[in-house]
Amino acid sequence: MLRTNTKLRATIALIITTFCFLQVTAGNNWNVPADKKTKNSTFKFDANTVKDGESVYTKNCVSCHGNPTKGNSLKSLNPVPPDLSSAKTQELTDGELFYILNTGRVIMPSFNNVLSEEDRWKVIAYIRSFNKNYVQQVSTNDATKSQLVKADIDFNKNTNRLTITVKATEKTGSVLLKNDEIALFANRYFGRLQIGESQRTSADGVAVFDFPKDLPGDKDGNVKLVVKINDDTYGEILRLKTMQIGIPTDKPALNEKRAIWNVLAKAPYWIIILYTSGVLAFGCVLMYLLYSLNRLRKAGNN
């Protein structure tokens, strides 16, 4: 009886250990596609980029990963976010780090739409600054090439669809950007709102997005659109365009009317009335009392 029990326990223990081991190995493997592994930054990492990267890191990463080399990452998460100065992380190529930042995994968020490409590379520069043996490989791609790309945005009122055509104007002629990741956003007060899902451009460099019918614009209905394209040759491309396709919205600013939260000059009337009448009542009573005391003093003279 006892024996089977121990056996059973041993088996369970074995299963659990194997499982943990599997999990760990799974945790190590980010399955980065070969072509992404070799991607590199177009600018050289130096003291300045490391400094900028540090501030990106403090804003976006430190809450989970803690400070590199300090081992103070957020232990309550599962998996525990690794210390990014560790050998395990430093073994990854720049392209792999960039890919991890772009895609994320479960708890590790995707920073693709949160940080600009430049900031993503800068934070990698910061992570690398903890590795003395690191030698950077700078991309041979020309960073200025992205300027050749144009995105034409067309809006169809009847279907409420946006058609985006992406092409680059080379000296040799127009090049259509095919099968590129493309995402559409609308600017809001804080950050951007993604419209629909990211897509890939068609063989003619075209992507079609359904535009929501109820998106508020400014008071004329203007919406600031941002198109983001990722191309292996031209890099990350951001194009902005303001279009009159939202619902005109003219809400007064929150600090325009009289309100509790506003400045003194814009205090609500009821508070002004209550407060001043209280103070006035006190003033009257005080005057009456002082007047009475004066009468009292005079009455003593007779």
């Binding site: 009573v285 009475s292 009468r295 009292l296 005079k298 009455a299 003593g300 003279n301």
Partner: peptide, 24 residues
């Protein structure tokens, strides 16, 4: 003591004012 002389008028004033404050 503001010229206190225990006059009826003074007594009345003290009474009145004390009452006013007590209410206020």
């Amino acid at each position: 003591s503001l010229n206190w002389n225990d006059t009826p008028e003074q007594k009345k004033i003290i009474k009145q004012t004390t009452r006013t404050i007590a209410i206020f």
